[in-house]
């Protein structure tokens, strides 16, 4: 059987996730790894929206906020198990994305960016201000997912770091698998067609507004699930999760690695998650360096790291 590039990508990803822990000098790296995987999952959603469909969102952190707070609030107020709270958060995010996206996606250009920006900030504002429900800017505790205890009962004893590393890694592989499947499906082709030219896509019979809306809703679900996983992993969530800077981070991660490619998104998420960890030594310069990296990559490697590097390699091979 010939391996498709899709399967190859997934196998390499899974292999890296399994192999990496053998090189971890301490347990702390499991935590960093899990952070990278969660970010990469959210960024995979951005790849579908921006890379496939060519639409910009500057408010996806709003959906992450909804996912995160669903896990904090639903178990306490409605007695939902945390796993179902993840589903609830995703459903609410999808519904909101549909409502916000429907009128906006009929417009062209950066309008979605602007509208989603407004939406994201409104979510952050509600989370900050509705203190009775969300406990405001200080954040709120999140119940335990309970899966680690369950695994323990089955005789699989993992440390907290190891469990979250494995679990988020698994979620990421599943997320990437769905995104890669979508890429070659009729819907994915329609998305890429309208990225090329909305007018051309429309003339060959693609319902442009509907397809864009699908991409927006799917990517919102990715962001929401990633937000839930962040909250569950930290057992705590603050309104910063829905902040504008978090939205910007997501888009930057996607574009840094190469917005059209899933592996690129994961690389971008890895770099931008590690950067602050490395830069804690010169925390003062963090913003300066982050800003500089964003500008330099966009100016000199417009397609992002992975596509640019791949092109270099192929160019040399010829």
């Amino acid at each position: 059987m010939r391996l498709s590039s899709k399967h190859l990508t997934l196998i390499i990803m899974a292999a890296l996730i399994v192999a990496a822990p053998f090189f971890f000098p301490s347990g702390y790296y499991f935590r960093v790894g899990a952070l990278i995987f969660v970010n990469a999952l959210a960024v995979t959603g951005i790849v579908i929206l921006t890379g496939y469909a060519g639409q910009i969102s500057l408010g996806h952190a709003g959906f992450a906020g909804i996912g995160g707070y669903a896990c904090a609030l639903a178990p306490v107020h409605w007695g939902l198990p945390p796993a179902l709270a993840v589903v609830l958060g995703a459903a609410v995010s999808a519904a909101l994305a549909y409502l916000v996206g429907r009128p906006i996606l009929r417009l062209k250009g950066y309008y979605l960016g602007v509208a989603s920006l407004g939406f994201g900030i409104l979510v952050a504002m509600v989370l900050n201000n509705e203190r009775e429900l969300t406990k405001g800017p200080d954040g709120i505790e999140v119940a335990d997912l309970g899966l680690r205890g369950l695994l323990k009962d089955w005789g699989l004893n993992l440390s907290n770091g190891e469990f979250w590393y494995a679990f988020t890694g698994l979620c990421l592989v599943i997320g990437a698998w769905i995104a890669l499947n979508l890429f070659n499906s009729p819907s994915g082709r329609a998305l890429r067609a309208l990225h090329g030219s909305e007018i051309a896509a429309g003339t060959v019979g693609i319902d442009v507004a509907r397809v864009k809306l699908q991409a927006f809703v799917i990517s919102a679900v990715y962001a929401s699930v990633a937000g839930s996983l962040t909250a569950l992993q930290n057992k705590f969530v603050t309104p910063d999760i829905a902040g504008f800077m978090h939205s910007v981070e997501m888009v930057t991660m996607a574009v840094l690695g190469g917005v059209g490619s899933v592996p690129g998104a994961i690389l971008g998420a890895g770099i931008l998650t590690l950067l602050p960890q490395v830069l804690t030594v010169f925390a003062e310069y963090e913003q300066l360096i982050l800003g500089l990296v964003m500008m330099l990559v966009m100016i000199f490697l417009r397609e992002g790291l992975v596509p640019s590097i791949l092109r270099k390699i192929r160019g040399r091979g010829e």
Binding site: L288, M295, I299
Partner: peptide, 22 residues
């Protein structure tokens, strides 16, 4: 960056704003 797609230009100016703030 002339001729770059809108999303790149937006990220450049956001990067510039973070840089200036830093």
């Amino acid at each position: 960056a002339r001729g770059a797609p809108v999303v790149s230009l937006i990220i450049i100016t956001i990067g510039a704003s973070i840089f200036i703030r830093g």
